[in-house]
Design a protein around this nucleic acid. Sequence first.
DNA 1: AGCGGGCTTGACCGGCCGGTCGGTGAAAAT
DNA 2: ATTTTCACCGACCGGCCGGTCAAGCCCGCT
Lengths: 229, 229
Amino acid sequence: MVELSTTKDGIPNQAEASDRVLQILSEAGRLFATKGYDGTSMRDIAVACGISKSLLYHHFSNKDEIYARVAVGSTLELYLFVRDRVPDGPPSQKIRAFMVATAEYFRRYRWAWIASTTAFWNDPDRHRQKERLTRRDRFENFLRGLIQEAIDAGEIRKVDVPMTGRLILSSLNWMHRWYNPNKSATPEQIADIFFDMVFNGLRSGDAAGSPPAETLKSSRRKARQTPRS
Amino acid sequence: MVELSTTKDGIPNQAEASDRVLQILSEAGRLFATKGYDGTSMRDIAVACGISKSLLYHHFSNKDEIYARVAVGSTLELYLFVRDRVPDGPPSQKIRAFMVATAEYFRRYRWAWIASTTAFWNDPDRHRQKERLTRRDRFENFLRGLIQEAIDAGEIRKVDVPMTGRLILSSLNWMHRWYNPNKSATPEQIADIFFDMVFNGLRSGDAAGSPPAETLKSSRRKARQTPRS
DNA sequence: AGCGGGCTTGACCGGCCGGTCGGTGAAAAT
DNA sequence: ATTTTCACCGACCGGCCGGTCAAGCCCGCT
């Protein structure tokens, strides 16, 4: 038996992989996410796993394949993951569920998520880049559909749909830069707060909509100590 | 006279630098922004400038110094740039001015902005990382102060101030990933739209606040064709 | 006991990396 | 007229990069 890594952060959709492969993907994901693709050498990955560099090439054909398994494997089913968590109901609540589900995906597959969204946002591999954009489009179109639904239902005003989608995705996509898993709210709670702010607006005056389903407990703390954006 | 680069994208705060140095900084910024720090070699920069690699070392002591001039030089005065463009008036309008000014900075110093916010978000140089965090804190604290002002003035409801700041900065910080300078709205217009959405909210029902000062002209286009987030 | 085969290794490769060095030619200073 | 200065270059360096390879180790099977 091999002694495995301490950080078994999830890499999605790797059902039939061996422990060793899962360990490599996990460590590689963490390294890609923190140091970038070019900043992570095969030696780095090998050392992090406590194995020889050659063994990496026994399980994977090259560095790119490791990255592909981490990144593509992670974004592969984001759309399905989120879609399955958006229940029937008022369109606005579907948007909220969309945001919370995306946040849950971020929490569960954090390193893979960061690795896939930061390294290679200009991917030199044309085919892979095209494939990623296709998936991203499908994901974003799904959100735009929900927004359009909410407009048609009269729940939200006639805003610019693509721009609204970008605002919502911005709030989720930027989260990895300031989120600290050891502090305060979970990603799902944060997504819920963001939905409340965007849906109901910051402006005071009218009774400002329903409060978030679950509000975070410790929102009172010194501004100095909270993580930055 | 030397034949200079075609893309003279701004690198701020380089007043007394020679043409050649400005050219190097400009090309390096563009490369760092598109291919990352590790993905950009000194040879790449030299070739992009049409000069020899040695000449880079004549003008700069090493690769890190080039990056520092690009990144630190750009974030150096973001706070001052924005502060000077936030006029007296209702706090909510100061927040809007904050967002529009940040967007203007992004438009003017696009590559430098991207290079400084993407490459090295985990900077191995501890001192420089600390300095950047300090500047980032000052910038973010300024925004939090404006939000608190707006709450105290009763213009916006009692939201979580740090979280609200993160939402606003997310919308601005993520913009470089989908903004296309050849299409539709300027960054300033986008910031204005985002402010409207966040301030007034998406929810319909009440007459939804004042429209943005300048609304973009061509918001009607096929969803397929608009850039993604 | 013998054996096949997957897991694992260390030594090694060509190439690109950031960085150095001695030198050149032309303008500026003396 | 000579020296100094300075932008600029080609050749080169040690080291790390991604990747290869032949060989050992260890296991269950016969």
